[in-house]
Computed example of a mutant assay.
Amino acid sequence: MSGPAKTALEALKKHVLASKSKMKKLVTDTAAANGTRAQPARTTTNDSSIGSRLDFGPLASKTRNFNFQLNKNASNSSVKKLAAKDSHKVWSTASVETDAKATDDQIKTKVEKLFKDLEKNMKDK
């Protein structure tokens, strides 16, 4: 796995796990369109400091897919360099079982598994 991409994934994970509402959105939002940003919110500060994003992928039955991508305006020069080659490249994909009635603990467990799977599925180049 690419060191810069892994670093960006860790920053994104930290950002998402710091907020119940951010985690909940990943598990319960079934109305978001495929290809739209899931996390973090699209701001210059987030795009720069976190250096990566999760986009909503297809929703299949009770499973939502997510795509992990790097941001071309990341403050980390190594991440920025990788993203400059192709800012639309999907570095990893993973899915989460959606559940509108999940408890906070269930949501956190699902999101932690999502990030573990994203790391496991990371493409090197």
Rank of each mutant, 00 (worst) to 15 (best):
E112V: 12
T103M: 07
A84S: 15
K25E: 08
S21F: 08
L54I: 10
K108M: 09
N73H: 04
A33D: 06
S2I: 05
K101G: 12
S87W: 03
D55R: 05
T30L: 01
Q39M: 03
S78L: 06
K62H: 12
D99K: 14
E119V: 07
N46V: 01
F56N: 02
R64N: 06
N67A: 14
K72M: 04
E119A: 14
K113A: 12
A41I: 06
D104M: 01
N73Y: 04
S87T: 06
F56R: 03
G57S: 07
T45G: 05
N46D: 10
P58D: 11
K101D: 15
G57V: 07
A83Y: 06
K22G: 02
L9P: 06
A33F: 02
T45D: 14
M122W: 08
T30M: 08
R64E: 03
K24G: 05
T36M: 12
S92T: 13
H15N: 15
S52F: 02
N73P: 01
S87Q: 12
D104F: 00
K125P: 05
N65W: 13
K13M: 11
T98E: 11
F115Q: 10
G3L: 13
R37E: 04
K85L: 14
L118W: 10
K108Y: 08
S78N: 13
Q39H: 00
D124P: 04
A18V: 06
K72D: 02
K101Y: 09
T93R: 14
G35Q: 09
I50H: 01
V90Y: 00
S95N: 10
N65P: 01
F56D: 03
S21H: 10
K22Y: 05
A5G: 09
H88P: 00
L114Y: 04
D124C: 06
S48C: 03
K110A: 15
V96T: 13
T43L: 04
K6H: 11
T30W: 02
T7Q: 02
D117T: 01
L17H: 05
F56A: 03
D29M: 11
D104T: 12
K116D: 15
L70P: 02
V79C: 02
T43K: 09
A11S: 14
R42S: 12
